[in-house]
């Protein structure tokens, strides 16, 4: 199980939960599990989110997530 920290604007889709716990071994599984638990998150995740795992903003659905990892969803970042 990993705890996923959501940005405030997403709470209206999660019954005001700021953090959601899901079962996931990768970033992709984590995003899918979020949408399964809270379908209202679907459009947000489809629109593109950035994921920070243990303080590092990662790209892609393949990034492994270990138990107890710090996970944040961030609004999508663009390069410069």
């Amino acid at each position: 199980m990993v705890e996923v920290n959501l940005w405030s604007g997403l709470r209206r889709f999660t019954g005001d939960l700021a953090a959601v716990t899901v079962e996931a071994g990768t970033t992709g599984e984590m995003l899918d599990a979020l949408v399964a638990a809270f379908p209202g998150l679907g459009p947000a995740i489809a629109a593109g989110v950035s994921v920070a795992v243990d303080g590092e903003i990662v790209n892609g659905r393949h990034i492994p997530i270990t138990r107890g990892a710090e996970i944040y969803l961030l609004q999508r970042l663009k390069g410069g």
């Binding site: 940005w7 405030s8 604007g9 209206r12 459009p43 947000a44 629109a47 961030l74 609004q75």
Partner: peptide, 20 residues
């Protein structure tokens, strides 16, 4: 406007962000 914009915002607001 995308999913993030709550009802009632002005018409040219297309994305709304809220975190902290």
């Amino acid at each position: 406007a995308d999913y993030s914009v709550p009802e009632g915002m002005p018409p040219n607001v297309v994305r709304y962000l809220d975190f902290g």
